[in-house]
Structure formats: structure tokens, C-alpha cells
Simulated assay, not measured.
Amino acid sequence: MKKSIIFLLMIAFNSQAVVKRHDIKPELYELKSAPEYYVDMPFEGTAVLIDKKWLLAPAHVIYTFFYDYVGKPIEVGGIENRIEKIVFHPEYVQDQTDWGESDPQPLMKFLNTHSDIALIKLTDSVVHINPIKIFSEKTELGLQVTAYGKGAIGNGLTGEIRETKNAGFLERAYNWFRQPFTELAPTQKFRQLNHYNNVITEVDERWIRFKFDAGETALPLEGTIGAGDSGGPAVIFDKGRPKLVGLASWVEINAPLNQFISGKYNSVAVFVRVSSFKEWIDKVLKENGR
């Protein structure tokens, strides 16, 4: 038992997550524990608990082409639950296109014009933790948000180091060892969770955007998303209580696809604008039982 505990602790010290300022100590971004509504999705990415039986996530973190989620277990607030059904937004299109290595514009057009959001219904009601409320107003522009992620590391000078989003040796060994003993899929559970701040600079029908600033215009914990941060929630705090504003989805690419490095200063992150989907969320929950 002691050896197992040591093994898990070694995995937990794998310090990965989000792209940070180069001139701020990385440990200032680190969190000891995740918000209670934060849920690690199977394999990679994040969902959030928005109702006692429902998770909300970007649709692209649900890999139905190789994994059957229905009936499978998922940990919510440290307790195992099961997935009863998944409801994709009707305007979500699964990306199966080869976008080549040069012109980013076709990919940018595709990402801009689909709806990257899905709802996940749980078998059992979650009663030991509180869901996060959705920010439903249309006043996101200019808001300072706090966002979370466990993806690739890097800083504004280097950009993300994409390889760091992958599981390290110890985590891979642990996942291999536990396979015969659990139905739970591997997740980013043992990765270091970081948080960062940014200010929403642009909104449209589906998306909110913010730019990764440097120097005097940057916030003390300015940051942006890295590969593997998909679904990381962006929240505001209203009288100390979090409200969900967005879900990390993609980044704007302004260079040939085979040359672009995400996460450098002035890069733009794009989050699902959750308020735009509030009516659809309420409709799905009503039709499928809260």
C-alpha cells in the first residue's frame, strides 16, 4: 500500500498545465485542488458539472469514433458515476478533415462556423458537490475571467511545448497497471492543475476571445490555453460564487499550419460562449429529465 501511495504522489508531481507569463514564477499559477465542478473527461479535456445529473463540455473532447461512452464510469467530485447519454449540439460537426500543412483559413472558417458543445447526462444525481451556475447575460465583453487547465506547458516567449501535454512515463505505467482492475478510462487526473487570468476582448454569436498580453498590459497571472486544455472553464466570481462564462475550445492560427506555435504572446484563445447556448441547454435538460 505504501508503495502505491508513493507511486501516485510521483505522478501528481508531473507539473503541466496552461501557458504562462515568462516573467512570473510558474508555481504561482498552480492550484492544490480543482474547483468542485471541474470534471476530468476520459482521455483528455474537461467537463463541468452544471446540474445534479448533467455535465457540459466542448463536443470535440468526446471521442465517439473510438470509445463508447454510454454506460461507462466517470469520476465526479471524487465519486464514480456513469454516463447515461450524450447530447451533441445539432450544429456540431466532428472534424475528420485533412487540413494540410499550409493555409490555415479553411480550418479557421470551419472552427468559427460550428457549435462545439455537448451535454453529458449522468446515471446518478450528484449530491456531494455543487454545480456551477451559468453566466446567462450578454455582457461578457471586458470581463476578467479565471480559467483552468491541465494541458501543455510553455510561456509567452517559447509558446507551448506541445509534447508536454502527453502523459509521462510514470502515468503511462500506472494506467497500464490499473487496466485489469477498473473500467475507468485514463484521464488527466494526476496532472498539475493551473489557473490563469485574462480579459475578454471580443465576443460573437458562438465564441468569446482573449489575447495573451505581455508586459505592462498583462495581468499578474496572465495566461492562455495550451494543447490538452480543451474544456477548461473560464469563470467570473459574483459575490464569491463562480459563474461559467466559457469553455476552452481552440486557438486562432495566423501562420502556415506546419509552422504555427500556439501560446506565444499576442496569440488569441477562443472559448465557447456558454450564454449563447443557455436556451439549448435548458431545453435538453427539460426534455431529458433534470
Rank of each mutant, 00 (worst) to 15 (best):
P106E: 08
L119S: 07
P256R: 11
I225R: 00
D124S: 10
N194T: 10
P104E: 07
M1K: 12
P180G: 06
E44I: 12
R21Y: 00
A59H: 01
D51N: 09
M108W: 06
P58I: 00
D40E: 15
E160T: 04
I120H: 02
I208G: 00
E205K: 13
V126E: 02
D213G: 02
D23V: 11
G154D: 09
K32A: 10
D213F: 05
W280I: 09
D229E: 11
A255E: 14
K133E: 06
G151S: 05
E140W: 01
I74R: 03
F169C: 04
V87D: 07
T123F: 07
M10E: 12
L285P: 03
P73N: 09
A47R: 02
T123M: 09
A59M: 14
N175K: 13
V61F: 01
K20D: 01
D124K: 12
A248Y: 07
K25S: 14
T158S: 15
Y67S: 11
G228Y: 00
A152M: 05
I200C: 03
Y92R: 10
P233T: 05
H22F: 11
K3D: 13
E80R: 15
M41S: 08
L107F: 08
T224E: 05
E279H: 10
D98A: 09
F210S: 01
K20C: 04
I132H: 00
V199Y: 04
Q179I: 10
P58Q: 00
D238M: 13
Q144R: 14
W99P: 02
T217Q: 15
W207R: 06
I261S: 08
E91G: 12
A34W: 06
E84G: 10
K211M: 13
L143E: 04
A255S: 14
V203M: 05
E137W: 06
V61A: 03
Y196L: 09
G240R: 15
A12W: 11
G71T: 12
A269W: 04
P73L: 08
N81F: 10
L119Y: 07
A218G: 05
F190Y: 15
S267T: 09
G226D: 03
I11D: 01
N130G: 05
L55G: 06
I134F: 02
L244T: 00
F135N: 01
W176A: 12
K85G: 08
R241I: 11
K150N: 06
I261F: 08
G226E: 03
E202V: 11
S4D: 12
A34E: 09
L49G: 03
N14Y: 15
G71E: 15
K109Q: 09
K53M: 13
L157V: 15
S33H: 12
K53V: 06
G228T: 04
V70P: 04
W280P: 04
Q94T: 09
S267M: 08
E287N: 13
D40V: 09
N254K: 14
H114V: 13
I208Y: 01
S15W: 07
D229Y: 04
F237H: 12
A57G: 07
D40N: 15
I11Y: 03
I200F: 05
I74P: 00
T146F: 00
G100Q: 12
T187A: 08
K85S: 15
N288E: 08
E171Q: 15
P104I: 02
E91P: 04
T64D: 13
I24G: 09
D282W: 06
V93K: 15
L157E: 14
G154Y: 04
V70Q: 11
